[in-house]
Amino acid sequence: MAKISSALFDIGYIDTLSRQNSLIHGIDTRVKVLTTLVFLITIVSFKTHEISSLFPFFIYPVFLIILADLPFSYFVRKIIIVSPFAVLIGILNPFIDQTIVLYIGKIGISGGLISFFNILLRFILTVLSALILVATSGFNNICIALEKLYVPKMLVIQLLFIYRYLFVLIKEASQMSKGRKLRTFNGKGMGIKVYASLIGHLLLRALNRAQRIHMAMLSRGFDGEIRTASNMKFDKKSFLFFILWSIVFLIMRIYNLPQIVGYFVVIILK
């Protein structure tokens, strides 16, 4: 139950964030999608034992969060809540590979621990960039951008439709689930049978709704083709955004900046 309403709240919240006006919000959504992709590919291309070289990449999310006026706390909470699968798989690494590969002071660090940290860093960076993309562009704009980037229209329309009716159906589902909860005691009534008929009813309603929507579409001249009146402008600012970040990512990918800086500090100290 809490899950349902919080999901609805969550979608609504990220939608609100995406409706702000900022330098970042104003950048062409296609450019943001592409930049995010470059960022992701760069991050994922690191080997499992690299940690220090991943740190400089935090500049990208931090930069965007600040310039786009997004709340840090939201992203921290999101990352903690979201998808424990990666962490679950990663956490096994320290148990599998216990070879000590380096010492910090007297404490030995195992290879498994290092790769676990590596997975954690990857996880935080990749999740952050995806969330920031939506929070600065808005889901609908991303869909339109995807269409302009040659994603099949059929899929884009599905994305838009599902997103639109998520709000309606989640509300329906949460009402039904509330109804069930009010009448279950000691866990009786939470089982498969009640669940299946509840979901079945939700499904029946969905089928009927689809029919009504189709009628509403037909009565306004729908002929199988959905045309929208939107257009996107590709400006210089957006172009620069993409080029500059791509260069930054590339530099950070090739050079292990913290390592190099650290070395020079050590040399100077000596």
């Binding site: 899950k3 349902i4 999901a7 329309i157 599905q158 838009l160 439709f161 599902i162 639109r164 009716y165 998520l166 309606v168 159906l169 989640i170 329906e172 589902a173 949460s174 039904m176 689930s177 866990g187 939470m190 089982g191 498969i192 009640v194 669940y195 509840l198 979901i199 939700l202 499904l203 969905a206 089928l207 709704r209 689809a210 029919q211 929507i213 189709h214 579409m217 729908f222 002929d223 199988g224 959905i226």
Partner: peptide, 26 residues
Amino acid sequence: DDSRIPLMGVLGAFVFAAQMINFTIP
């Protein structure tokens, strides 16, 4: 025919919503 477009959309939203309702595993 073109009724498929809203049908798939609403059913997608349905699966999404349905996944948020839980049942107790025996």
